[in-house]
């Protein structure tokens, strides 16, 4: 709902947009939340514009080039791993990600966003566990490839795990292919073990 209202952090918005690209049920929910916004616009108060506003708008329209929506980026193909909103941030599909190793075969790539939150791609080899950690804020983790399991359940492509202060978990990538996730947080994670806590400032989690 916050995504529909436009009040969500950029990182969380990216997870929402990526998920909605793959989930029709959530797209329908988004559209119904937007309909609420539309209905509120209908009945909200009005603030009159200046007298010349309409003319100014026509001037804007006349100044705009014809057919402005030509370079609509080519549709992502069926077999791409990343839906288009994510591709815009990465600059392409999975093969364009600039990974950085953060140990135990785990790699990450931090995506550039505004605001206090952080959003990153993680690649976890099948069968590998992420360090046990808790949360100071909200963490949204969406699976793009492979799957992971934790105390909360089993998450596969398209699934989103919502973790908050109450959840302390140890995600384990399910054996087999690497698990690629998109994870957005609004506050640093809280690791249990000493080693990850020391490493935290260096890897920026």
């Amino acid at each position: 709902m916050s995504y529909a209202a436009g009040t969500l952090d950029e990182g969380f918005s990216l997870v929402a947009a990526t998920h909605i690209s793959m989930c029709d049920e959530c797209r329908a929910r988004l559209e119904s939340f937007e309909a609420v916004g539309g209905a509120l616009v209908d009945e909200c108060e009005v603030i009159e514009l200046s007298g010349h506003a309409l003319d100014a708008t026509f001037a804007l329209i006349d100044a705009m080039p014809e057919a402005p929506d030509a370079p609509w980026v080519e549709k992502t193909s069926k077999d791409s791993v990343f839906p288009s909103p994510l591709q815009e941030y990465v600059g392409g599909d999975l093969d364009k990600v600039k990974w950085r190793s953060i140990g135990s075969g785990v790699m990450q790539a931090v995506l550039k966003t505004e605001g206090p939150g952080k959003v990153r791609l993680l690649s976890i080899p099948g069968g590998t566990a992420m360090p046990d950690h808790g949360h100071r804020g909200l963490e949204l983790t969406m699976v793009l490839k492979g799957a992971f399991e934790d105390e909360d359940g089993y998450f596969a492509r398209g699934d989103v795990e919502v973790a908050n202060e109450d959840l302390h978990h140890t995600p384990v990538a399910v054996a087999g292919e690497d698990c690629i996730c998109l994870a957005a947080t609004d506050a640093p994670l809280r690791f249990k073990g000493l080693v990850p806590r020391i490493a935290q400032p260096f890897i920026g989690i």
Partner: peptide
Amino acid sequence: TWVFTIARNRKIDALRRMKRPEP
């Protein structure tokens, strides 16, 4: 609803100076 979504996206651009990822 259409007007609302356009206005909302413009608001995000202008007031929060951030991108809005679209599905």
